[in-house]
Amino acid sequence: MGRSISRAFVGIKNKVRLKLQGWKGNMFSQGGREILLKAVALAIPSYAMSYFKIPTKLCSEITKESLFHKAYAVRYFSDGNLLIASLGGNPSYAWRGIWEAKNLLVQGGRWNVGDGSLIHILNDAWIPGFQNLRQELGDEQSMEQLCQLDNQVLSLIDPGTKWWDLAKVKALFNPNVVDVVIRLHPNHTGAID
């Protein structure tokens, strides 16, 4: 495979793109577009996936370029965030299933801190072992300090070092939470959450 695994799989991405561009997706019904994507576009990388682990970045790129993602993003999560998407009015059968599964994921999942821009400090689960952070605030001053912050985890990360601003974290949370937070590693490359 060599040094660049991503370059080795560029052909798969190009084949998927060419196959999807060759079809007139707007001529199909909602169900037809779903079948097209599942049957044709997802079959292309199957052989390679049976032998190699496809890079996560490539899977993400193929998904975002797909007709399925574009159609659902426009109709149901135009802000780009599937995790906060609503059911919407008159949802398709497929979207209703995705939305229900998404809710299960949100209930049992936890955010992985990247740049902190998508994670709300108190409303999202991002610290292992702590689901209700309002109970874990250090003292009355913490709530006042929280109001001064952006309310996103990004506001707890020092922009220069791309590491936790320990003064803010210690001022906001009790020592048990602080110990867990400083063990989390924000993504220093600026990757999103």
Rank of each mutant, 00 (worst) to 15 (best):
S78M: 10
D79V: 04
D79Q: 09
G80C: 07
G80H: 09
N81F: 06
L82V: 14
L82M: 05
L83N: 03
L83D: 00
I84W: 08
I84E: 14
A85K: 01
A85G: 06
A85P: 05
S86D: 15
S86H: 10
L87P: 03
G88M: 02
G89S: 15
G89L: 11
N90G: 09
N90I: 13
S92L: 02
Y93E: 11
Y93I: 11
A94D: 11
A94Q: 07
W95L: 05
R96Q: 11
G97C: 08
I98E: 05
I98G: 05
W99C: 01
W99L: 01
E100M: 08
K102S: 05
K102N: 10
K102W: 02
N103A: 06
L105W: 13
L105N: 06
V106C: 14
V106H: 12
V106N: 12
V106Q: 13
Q107T: 14
Q107G: 07
Q107K: 13
G108Y: 10
G109Y: 03
W111L: 05
V113A: 05
V113P: 07
V113H: 09
V113Q: 08
V113S: 08
G114E: 01
G114P: 10
D115G: 02
D115Y: 01
G116D: 07
G116T: 04
S117E: 12
I119L: 03
I119W: 05
I119F: 03
I119K: 01
I119Q: 03
I121N: 11
I121R: 10
I121D: 10
I121M: 07
L122P: 13
A125Y: 13
A125P: 14
W126L: 03
W126V: 00
P128S: 02
P128V: 00
G129M: 00
G129I: 00
F130A: 00
Q131S: 12
Q131K: 15
N132G: 01
L133N: 06
L133A: 01
R134K: 15
R134Q: 14
Q135L: 14
Q135C: 06
E136T: 05
L137Y: 08
L137F: 04
G138F: 09
G138R: 15
D139L: 11
